[in-house]
Design a protein around this nucleic acid. Structure first.
Lengths: 331, 331
DNA sequence: CTGTTAGCGCGTTCAT
DNA sequence: ATGAACGCGCTAACAG
């Protein structure tokens, strides 16, 4: 692939390859004069060490693998930016694996990552099993998981407090006088979905309202799901007066459905999303939502990964925040 | 990093490493019986070939590097998805480099990519110079550029016809009776900005309207720029009746500014964006825009890259499309 | 059909 | 302060 290698530089400088290596890597045991001469020659020849040979010897790639579920959902880009910014400060590059909600792709990327191109992995994806993650970790690969509580001696995690999020959203709606609150939830198998549902139930219980599973649905977390579920819910005789969605993008689908059905938001229907992505303040009306600190999540994941690479394990929960805009109102 | 290597499998099976390699890679010259036995042992030992050793030998990484400017702008995720989907069909993984509009980061990623982790590069970023790209191409690295017309024997490109896009947007506004049309453009040095400006000028000329450079500004292509420029434009005595923006995200900024100033869209101000990202149909009012076929752009880039790796060079232009929604109306 | 040898491009001994 | 030899893990080329 690359043109000039270390041997050619060595030949040009009339020294051995190891001397070139020492010179260019700033290692001791070489005279300042030779170093300068070699550095100059290397630059002239436009020499850059071959990555493939380098990582094979050093056993370090200076790369981090970041697995995410859906790059089209703005939640993830913000997370990625947080991770990338922090990683690049330490000279690390982030290799992004986007899985488009496909379990097979998650497995493929994880397999790929585990074969050597990265020094550690951050997983922000829900399909892959804890067992699979633990297996990789036990092979010696440092792993940090995002938004998944995984207690294991070799794995760290950072997560939004999802139960708190579900609780905040539901409580907000209850306080506004709603009692029939639908929850258009995410994938059933996902831990995140389950924890938010716990928060939802907890709030209901505190308000003394019976839990009704007819108001809950589990979905692929994309806009269309929100749209379809909203149509279903709003066309029944006993339609809910408020809808809480698994994420903002799904809430956009709900808003769209309500508009098409001529149902006014927030007068006739209140909507609460989750994530607080950039576009949520631009919808009509602007979306009330539970904010996740996405950049912080990405940043902390990298920080915890670096610690893990040095043998220190540490995990943490980040509190979400209720952002009240204009899709919710008193019943 | 990885636990068990090919030698251990060989030892366990009582054969040589090369036999194991043949068995696992499906190469000929090995008895079916031995192959099955080795495959079984490899699976039992949970062996997966070490990527680092493998690429050093095969000279192929099965990776593509994809350089993008701003992952937070939904234009790019859609492009990435198109690229990824097509690449993964051929067993390739996409390594994403996000540069957050920083020239230094673009250079870093390009440097990294050129040192060996990928078999080819797709560049959808504007800061890096043609010279730099050509240098890398001449080192033997297959490169495809997106939205940049770069004629060079070793480089392919795929681009939206930007001049056409600028022309379509401006012509649409002219037909609606607008004559004072501001253009909140992208980065000045960017070829894309320049080509769209050409289209804008061409439409103006055809309508017999003089070009007024006061109506043109060059900006970092993020939402805030649209907001700030709109405030500036709309607070002057001679405010334009229509604004064309470099991308949809900037148009969102314009909409926000107009709302804050109490200016009604589209009655008092028409707005046309560029890209047609997913959220543009969710704004209030839904945005009129020039659609780029983003997934197609990503898909074609990979296809052209594969061709380039086999020595065939081919480039193409994709026609954009005017999507009329509700931010434009007759003057 | 299988084993041995060599080499990808580096960094790291261990000598000198 | 510098060079020679070795090895990272794998596959390709050559032998048998």
């Amino acid at each position: 692939m690359r043109r000039v290698n270390i041997q050619e530089v060595a030949k040009e400088a009339g020294v051995s390859p190891s001397t070139v290596s020492r010179a260019l890597n700033g290692f001791p045991g070489i005279s300042e004069k030779t170093r300068e001469r070699i550095v100059e020659i290397a630059r002239k020849l436009n020499y850059r060490p071959n990555y493939r040979g380098q990582i094979l010897t050093t056993q370090s790639t200076k790369n981090i693998g970041l697995l995410i579920t859906d790059i089209a959902n703005p939640f993830f880009p913000e997370l990625v930016m947080g991770a990338e910014e922090y990683a690049s400060k330490s000279g690390y590059t982030v290799l992004l694996g986007n899985t488009s909600e496909s379990e097979e792709k998650e497995t493929n990327y994880l397999d790929f990552f585990s074969r050597g191109p990265v020094d550690g992995i951050i997983i922000s994806a829900s399909r892959v099993s804890n067992e699979h993650i633990i297996m990789l970790a036990e092979e010696g690969l440092p792993i940090v998981v995002i938004n998944r509580i995984l207690e294991h001696p070799k794995i760290s995690y950072v997560s939004t407090d999802m139960e708190k999020g579900g609780y905040l959203a539901t409580m907000h709606l209850l306080r506004l006088g709603h009692s029939k609150i639908a929850f258009i939830n995410g994938p059933k198998h996902s831990e995140v979905s389950q924890r938010r549902l716990e928060g939802y139930k907890k709030a209901l219980k505190e308000a003394g309202i019976d839990y009704n599973s007819d108001l809950i649905s589990f979905n692929v977390p994309v806009s269309e799901s929100g749209y379809k579920e909203a149509i279903k819910l709003l066309c029944t005789g006993e339609a809910p007066t408020a809808i809480f969605t698994y994420n903002d993008v799904m809430a956009f689908g709900v808003i769209k459905a309500a508009k098409e059905l001529g149902i006014k938001i927030p007068e006739e229907l209140s909507v609460v999303g989750f994530d607080d992505i950039f576009f949520s303040s631009f919808t009509d009306p602007p979306l009330t939502t539970i904010k996740q600190f996405k950049e912080e999540l990405g940043r902390m994941a990298v920080e915890l990964l670096f610690k893990l690479m040095e043998g220190e394990r540490e995990s943490l929960l980040i509190e979400p925040e209720l952002i009240i805009r204009n899709t919710t109102s008193r019943r």
